[in-house]
Nucleic acid binder design. Structure first.
Lengths: 118, 118
DNA sequence: TCCTTGTTCAACCGAAAGGTTGAGGAAGGA
DNA sequence: TCCTTCCTCAACCTTTCGGTTGAACAAGGA
């Protein structure tokens, strides 16, 4: 899976990885510390971290034997930019439809008040 | 995969599905219309739409034989809320560390590592 | 009624994801 | 030097994912 956006979304699609991100938002941590709360092996958590690292969400440094993991906030922008773009369009489109409906001569049909278009 | 957040992130982890969302931001479309640009079968696109629907990103109505697909913008909030929360925390933490570094008398020794609750 | 169009369901396939165990590398400390 | 700690790599297993083909269902139109 080459593209960065897919990697980020995919990385955050796993609840354990989101949990790890949440934990790292508090402060840097080592793999062992991160693995403690879960009943999976340290190797599994190490794999999760690799996924997060490949997505650019996390970086690892070296400090004696330890490899402290650090959360990188910049990549989040990639997602929010994408999301905002299409959400804005969808909402504009919805608003426009709403306007059209509102400006229509009332045809005995119920008015488009509190619109749920499903 | 039960939780809604995982479903949404997972749904958008696929480039074809993001493409479909982009297409739907312009306006509603049928499965056949959505499938046209890709060289996969209509069934494959139908599956993609099911994933998007299960994530709440899309809804399908009925209109004669056609099933027009509609983009639902609300679910995006689920993601942005999550993302913003941890990005903000990460940035605060970064800013705080920055302040600490800036306010430190320049010692030649390595700085006291920032709050790591181990 | 039968046919055509649009869509979904079911079964299958290969590749990738997420987990395991076991071994190995890197960096101190005794 | 040898030992211990922390971490990653490699091989394997099972489940899920994205795709296929083939059949079926739903709703007009002839």
């Amino acid at each position: 899976m080459a593209d960065p956006l897919s990697r980020v979304f995919s990385a955050l699609a796993d609840p354990t990885r989101r949990d790890i991100v949440a934990r790292l938002a508090v402060g840097d941590a080592t793999v062992n510390e991160l693995a403690a709360p879960y009943d999976v092996t340290v190797q599994a958590v190490s794999k999760h971290l690799k996924v997060l690292e490949d997505a650019g969400l996390v970086s690892r440094s070296r400090e004696a034997q330890r490899r402290p993991v650090h959360l990188e906030a910049e990549v989040f922008d990639l997602m929010t930019t994408w999301i905002e773009r299409y959400r804005r369009r969808a909402e504009e489109r919805y608003r426009r439809l709403d306007d059209v409906l509102r400006s229509m001569p009332d045809v005995s049909a119920p008015p488009p008040q509190e619109g749920n278009p499903s």
